[in-house]
Design a protein around this nucleic acid. Structure first.
Lengths: 177, 177
DNA sequence: GTCTATACAGCGATAGAC
DNA sequence: GTCTATCGCTGTATAGAC
């Protein structure tokens, strides 16, 4: 895995979070990284390959982050809070959830990417469900779906209104009292 | 207001809900309607004008829909249920919330459209707040924000998973028991 | 109000040299 | 692994005839 490949993935990830996957071109990536667009094609033959690699990598790093939270933090409520703070930090840079963005752009991604996205959200919901179960929720999978929906929706609203606190308000019942 | 203009707005609205505002072109509109793309430009000089007209119209028709619900239905919970059913119907055609979609594509719309979007969601939240107040919620504006966030997020998840019932599950606490 | 014709820019993608 | 050069296509937009 070359350094250039990683830099492409990093930049594509950021741009997708802020502008959407259809909101940037290979020329944008090339200009920012300082190479030619044909070099981007060397690493990712088609843009659909870039999409797949990006979502796949994000799904894996997210799984690692969850494992680390489970290991480092005892209180499940504090784990949830940590996740919320992560999304709030991205939000301050105008970035929303990578997979939420691509779920909005669903009609322009391949079936393979759709499956990756569905898997991402299933794993996310599973992890949330575990935390909420520890917190004593009676129907953890249901509560996890509500948490996830509120998170994704509030990111859209918070960015539009330029108010990061919207996310915390939308998830109030889960991370507080 | 010519009939063609209305047909353009209707079609653009549908396509934005399913593919996103950047997911269709003037040529797409022209082909479907059966005219040439230069005729689309006659009605909407630039695509940004189309975006503004579309969101503006949607905001107005939504306000009328809310007024009609207030008049026709007595139980506030039934009013909320009616709204949910409306979004579920669109979802069966692969369509999510027009303004939610454009909120995701925020970086590619004008400041004017952003203000319209923010206004749409504020009015939506205000109306929800009124219903939830009647239903006895202690902090109606907060509950309205949670409803709205859960709705927008669940639309993304429901379409991705091909399961319309996700919306109802995400809003369970509001429209049931 | 719709047409033909066209300008012009940007995009994804490829061939082949180095 | 990166470059130069280029192709073909699509996009938004405009001018001017009807």
């Amino acid at each position: 895995m070359s350094d250039t490949r990683t830099r492409i993935l990093d930049l594509a990830n950021q741009l997708t979070q802020s502008r959407g996957f259809n909101g940037f071109s290979y020329l944008d990536l090339a200009a920012e990284i300082g190479i030619k667009n044909s070099s981007i094609h060397y690493h990712f033959k088609a843009k659909s390959d870039l999409a797949l690699a990006m979502v796949d990598r994000h799904r894996e790093t997210t799984a690692e982050s969850f494992a680390r939270l489970d290991h480092d933090i005892d209180d499940p409520r504090e784990r949830l809070l940590s996740v919320v703070r992560y999304f709030e930090a991205d939000l301050r840079d105008g970035k929303i959830c990578l997979c939420g963005m691509m779920a909005a752009e669903l009609q322009s991604v391949s079936e393979e990417v759709r499956r990756e996205l569905a898997l991402y959200f299933r794993k996310f919901q599973d992890w949330l469900s575990k935390q909420l179960s520890e917190m004593g929720y009676s129907d953890p999978p249901r509560a996890a779906l509500q948490f996830l929906s509120a998170l994704e929706g509030s990111l859209l609203l918070a960015r539009l209104q330029g108010d990061v606190t919207v996310v915390g308000q939308a998830l109030d019942g889960f991370v507080n009292g």
